[in-house]
Design a protein around this nucleic acid. Structure first.
Lengths: 211, 211
DNA sequence: GCGTAAAGTGACGCCGCCGTCACGTTCTCT
DNA sequence: AGAGAACGTGACGGCGGCGTCACTTTACGC
């Protein structure tokens, strides 16, 4: 049992004493509960009370961690978005061809959905709110990033001249819906969805390149 | 001025007397206001009060027309969905080839978005709620219908053997996002978006057909 | 160990929404 | 034209969320 100071320091993963540890734990508990609640009820219908009721904390405690519901929502999304974007970008960086680039992005994205269905539910349930709240973030950022990548690939001659904005929108929109369909299959076949999406858009890019 | 009964009957487009006329007008006013409110605030955050405040009616009157917020929401969606589905289906019916089928669907869908951007905002803002509320309707119905059409086309040999479910999901998902991008262009180029989406998916179908 | 400051607690006042209802107004039917 | 029903009205009680605050509990530093 960690009773001596040294042992306590070893047992706690983050620096700082016990104070900081419960602080981190409480914050995590609130974020976990919030992910659940926002995914189930949607942002608009959810209340701060709904969230704290799912934790062991009192209502007043919430306001020691977040000023209001919107801040909480932003924190929850930031956490989820970071994970998926890091995954997708890391995989894309190693791509050496157009096919690898497209396939790697889809593979990591669909893999994320399969690994963390709750985060996916959160995003899908609140996609409209997200778009309205931060005009053009999270998903928008995903689209914009992809569009930028496509443009550089077009300049480099790797990709034929297509409308990068439309192409990025189509690829992301399709990913959302195909992801829904994939999750409903048992078991979710990440590789099948990846192959499908990759082939569709490689075929589409080819076709667009030679009108 | 319509004072005699005959004149009154002529002046009012629907049958029934004055009573029925204001009834229809009130219902329409509520639905109009609701479309606005749901599109701006989202279903969860919107209140019945928000809606009636945008009309000339008293709060009690609302409950003469709808029992609660959910019924109102369903009515609003039904109205919007009916218009777009009628449009898309009518156009598809006349298609004589795969290309015509795909292009006609997209053309009518994008045309609808351009003609009625408020209905589009409503659907996009509340897509997550819609999916959660009627599990698999409206959009789901769109996907399912398309999937069914694809399957019959595959049986008939018009379309190569692709995963109809994934394909329908991808086509609908892409349409949503490309629609967003199209609306933001000034002026919205329905034909450009139609050409783009059609080529992408014809190319994709072709590629999938010969693995 | 002990004082202090940080953090947890839940009751409280305020506010806005919900759905109803008793009343007033307006159309319809004879 | 007059009786009656259908409809519009807004005030009302009940409810639940919001954010605060005085008080208690807990960890930190000496």
């Amino acid at each position: 049992m960690p009773t001596s100071p040294t042992a306590a320091v070893i047992a706690e993963d983050d620096s700082g004493g016990r104070r900081a540890a419960t602080k981190a734990a409480n914050r995590a508990a609130i974020l976990d509960a919030a992910r659940c609640v926002f995914a189930e009820l949607g942002y608009g219908s959810a209340t701060v009370r709904d969230v704290i009721r799912r934790t062991q904390l009192a209502s007043g405690t919430f306001y020691n961690y977040f000023p209001d519901k919107e801040s909480l929502f932003r924190a929850v999304l930031e956490q989820a978005a970071e994970r998926v974007r890091a995954r997708v970008q890391a995989a894309r960086r190693e791509a050496r061809s157009l096919e690898e680039f497209v396939a790697a992005g889809y593979r990591e994205y669909f893999g994320f959905l399969a690994d963390d269905p709750e985060a996916f539910a959160l995003m899908r349930r609140n996609s409209g709110t997200i778009r309205a709240m931060f005009d053009e973030p999270i998903f928008g950022a995903g689209i914009d990033e992809l569009a930028a990548d496509l443009r550089t690939a077009i300049s480099a001659g790797i990709v034929p001249a297509v409308d990068a904005e439309y192409m990025a929108a189509a690829m992301v929109g399709a990913a959302l819906e195909v992801g829904v369909a994939m999750i409903q299959r048992e078991p979710p076949d990440v590789e099948g969805a990846t192959q499908f999406a990759t082939r569709v858009f490689l075929g589409g890019i080819e076709r667009l390149g030679s009108p």
